[in-house]
Design a protein around this nucleic acid. Structure first.
Length: 470
DNA sequence: TGAAATGTTGGGGCG
DNA sequence: ACGCCCCAACATTTC
């Protein structure tokens, strides 16, 4: 049999990989990754070197695993179609297999390749592909709860559905050139690779998963799985994760622990929901899903946007969140909601500015999930938070960082502030400020907005937009 | 996966 | 014993 190309994009794994399995059934396999300047230069990925470093680390790990199995990864840079045509010719390949992706760019790219080359797209990015979860009357869901009900009503994946990593990957006896991956320094917090992803999943499902219901909201503790970067590049199969979580739920000690694991599965369904939404409504990347909220009179004050990005808003929990992002390339989910709500509802800055910044900074930055989260926060999206729902950063901080561990970890200027004042340090008297060495306006910024006025301002802007659209 | 204002209820202190 | 008030706790409403 002539060989097949396994075109790798965001499925950097050997286990449970339908594209790889299809290529293996075809014959010898040439694993290919194309460094695509159009994708790398796009609005969301242009400055995202941290994410790129994680991707390249994953490719190096994949190459090492492939070499243990008799194959290797071929890396080429250029436009996908001519590059694939060239490699297919060099290898004498008669088929190309790839995992289907659903962003508008990915769909355009794949359609162009498919028009010229024998490319077969497989599932694997999601447990349920778009189109499988449909309303009874037909058409896509736009509200999460019924979507999740329909998702759960479908036959659950079983452990027998999960393909283990192949023991050998037959590779043609050819000298195929491969480019060096650019050297980018990777974050020590997120060692890349399939093995690390699986270790994290196993560890989570043995411990934190059983207290996930409450633990996931506590900013200062390790209550979440921190798997998002691994899902982002398919170092972990969502289907394998669901099967493993179902097994964990079955061995849970009590109903509460079982419910916690189910809540984590619900988060995976949110991931699928937003991938489905992006597939059915690609315009969400450009404008609000809700047509009535497409023309909000944002204030968009550049200095305030800068303060938000740098974590210098004067609101400790917001600043801790933004500094966690800048320092580590990741942010706790609860913190994402708080920081995003502050940008949109308190500063009245266009949610797309925040979406863009998150995409530049996040190791796990994914257009579907990130856009879904921002539109949810802004109240412009599918199943969105109502526009009048405005987080109070002080209350959120008291509730979800009660001992201030999160704030103290990321905002060193506040480390010596007593717990009672940590969430709203501007309320300290001048005497108290000097006593703990934190002087508002000098060593730590004064709040950049007065929360007493933002609520009315934001409600007016949203109501005005709605009235104009009606 | 909100916050704040307003309304309701019921226990207990007190004259 | 009774009515009155206070107030915490909870429910409802509003944005």
């Amino acid at each position: 049999m002539p060989p097949a190309l396994w075109w790798i994009r965001r499925d950097l794994r050997l286990h449970d990989n339908p594209a790889l399995s299809a290529a293996l059934r075809h014959g010898a396999v040439v694993p290919v990754f194309v460094i695509d300047p159009a994708a790398d230069g796009s609005r969301f990925h242009r400055r995202a070197d941290r994410r790129r470093a994680f991707l390249y680390g994953g490719l190096r790990a994949l190459d090492a695993s492939l070499r243990q199995r008799g194959a290797r990864l071929i890396v080429r840079a250029g436009e996908p179609l001519p590059v694939l045509r060239q490699i297919a010719q060099e290898a004498g390949a008669t088929a190309i297999f790839a995992e289907e992706d659903f962003s508008p760019y990915a769909r355009r790219r794949d359609a162009a390749v498919q028009a010229a080359l024998p490319l077969t797209l497989t599932g694997g990015l999601t447990v349920q592909p778009p189109g499988r979860v449909q309303k009874a009357a037909g058409g896509p869901y736009t509200v999460f709860t019924p979507f999740s009900r329909a998702w759960r009503a479908l036959p659950a994946p079983a452990s027998s559905d999960i393909q283990p990593a192949p023991e050998r990957v037959p590779f043609p006896a050819l000298a195929l050139a491969s480019a060096e991956l650019p050297a980018l320094s990777a974050s020590p917090l997120f060692p890349s690779g399939e093995a690390e992803a699986r270790r994290r999943l196993e560890h989570f499902l043995e411990h934190a998963a059983f207290q996930y219901q409450t633990g996931r909201n506590l900013l200062g503790s390790d209550g979440t799985a921190v798997l998002s970067p691994y899902f982002r590049f398919g170092l972990l199969s969502a289907r394998a994760a669901v099967v493993a979580a179902q097994a964990a739920a079955a061995r849970a000690a009590d109903a509460e622990a079982r419910q916690s694991v189910e809540t984590w599965i619900t988060e995976l369904i949110w991931r699928e929901f937003y991938l489905h939404i992006l597939y059915h409504f690609p315009d969400v990347l450009r404008t609000a899903f809700n047509p009535k909220l497409r023309h909000i009179a944002w204030r968009n004050v550049p200095a305030e946007f800068e303060a938000w990005k740098q974590g210098r808003t004067g609101y400790p929990v917001v600043d801790a969140a933004m500094r966690q992002l800048a320092e580590t390339g990741w942010m706790h989910n609860r913190a994402r909601m708080i920081a995003a709500s502050f940008l949109v509802k308190d500063l009245l800055i266009d949610w797309r500015w925040g979406e863009q910044w998150f995409m530049e900074q996040l190791v796990d930055g994914d257009p579907a999930a990130n856009n879904g989260g921002w539109q949810w926060t802004a109240g412009t999206g599918t199943d969105a938070a109502p526009y009048f729902r405005i987080f109070n950063p002080v209350l959120q901080s008291e509730k979800f960082d009660p001992d201030g561990r999160y704030i103290r970890r990321y905002v060193p200027e506040l480390r010596s502030v007593p717990e009672a004042h940590l969430h709203a340090p501007w309320q300290m008297s001048p005497l108290e400020q000097h006593a703990c060495g934190c002087v508002i306006g000098e060593t730590y910024p004064a709040p950049i907005v007065d929360r007493a006025v933002v609520k009315a301002r934001t409600l007016a802007a949203y109501q005005h937009a709605q009235a104009r659209a009606a």
